[in-house]
Design a protein around this nucleic acid. Sequence first.
DNA 1: AGAATACGCTACATCGTTGTTGCAAGTTGC
DNA 2: GCAACTTGCAACAACGATGTAGCGTATTCT
Lengths: 210, 210
Amino acid sequence: MEQASGQRPLRADAERTVQAILEAAERVLSADPAATMEQIARAAGVARTTVHRRFTSRDALVDALAEWAARQFHDAVASAHPDSAPPLVALYQVTANVLRVKLGWGFAMGRSGPGNPEVDRVHAEVIEQCGGLFRRAQEHGVLRPDVDPEWARRVYYALIHEATRERSHSKAPERVDELATRVVDTLLQGVGQEGPPLTRDSGPKGTPRS
Amino acid sequence: MEQASGQRPLRADAERTVQAILEAAERVLSADPAATMEQIARAAGVARTTVHRRFTSRDALVDALAEWAARQFHDAVASAHPDSAPPLVALYQVTANVLRVKLGWGFAMGRSGPGNPEVDRVHAEVIEQCGGLFRRAQEHGVLRPDVDPEWARRVYYALIHEATRERSHSKAPERVDELATRVVDTLLQGVGQEGPPLTRDSGPKGTPRS
DNA sequence: AGAATACGCTACATCGTTGTTGCAAGTTGC
DNA sequence: GCAACTTGCAACAACGATGTAGCGTATTCT
């Protein structure tokens, strides 16, 4: 077992094949989570038997995929120094980094599920870091004191996920910055006008009271 | 084809069986989208063959489920009068109604996909209504003028979806109101302190250090 | 009560997917 | 150039899920 993880040094072409399979699996499985090995193999431009040679089973393949994505995810968050940089800077940096990764590996990151314990461990670690960041943000007055940090984190995740569902997947760096700005803006400010909305009546416009 | 849709008047007990199957399918499929007919049948308390008697195929079952959920979704939105009530009232009402439905039928609503054209039509209609509501909200000064209405709608969907992922699924009415309040609050205000965050430097704030 | 309908159960046919094996041909690396 | 490695291809076995059919029994409706 564990053929995909560098058990023994693979030859150059074999290494490329593994990479091609992983990328194809990402693409195909994000479109249809129940896709067959045949579809994945065709998308990777290899024979189905070759896929089985590199990954002992279908589960092993999606496991490797999830593990690879989890590592990318972790690195994207960690490289933004979420527990040392100023909260707002770190928040933006984390957002941009994660978006960059998730734009290309959307499938493998969503389907974490209780499968690989290693993947769960990494995800929990990331949640821990995000939680710490949000706590610091709250102490620094970036977040409102009365919001549940857990809810804030989940909203944050959801916004990032939604941002990756944008039309026209141009992975250009400036596009990522634009998306990150929108995510952070929406997270902190929402989409409404200033002023507490629910405590006031439905009073339409007229008195924006600038 | 089309056995589930009242082709011919079913007997009372048969009608109940159909209902039980749909509810069980919702529960089981939300836990595992690739669940077997056997699992669904067991969960419904009937034999697998009975499921096949009521639904010609597996696809027909999930189709019926999606159609049923789409109708519920549509009714939940329409009954809030999204294009006549004051925007803020309508927004809250729509949120509460949709939450009420989705708390019990989360699976069938997420998996819309390009399957049943009727389902797609209903969903498009709902999106149309939401779009109109958000446009009116913008005109009434509830939404900021510079936000993309489409982005606002997607954020709205994501927040509702996230709210249904809460621990402890108590479908108590007051719980729904609490969730709806949180969703609308977060949508309009976000989770941050007042003031534009990204234009200012990382400086935490006016020294809250109590 | 009687006819129609619905259900559970068993058995069976079919199909698609998974995973394996062997061999020939092509590629890489020394 | 040669040995080791890798891939494609074809064939095969095993498995689970889907869908069908028949029969005996239970329920509903009138």
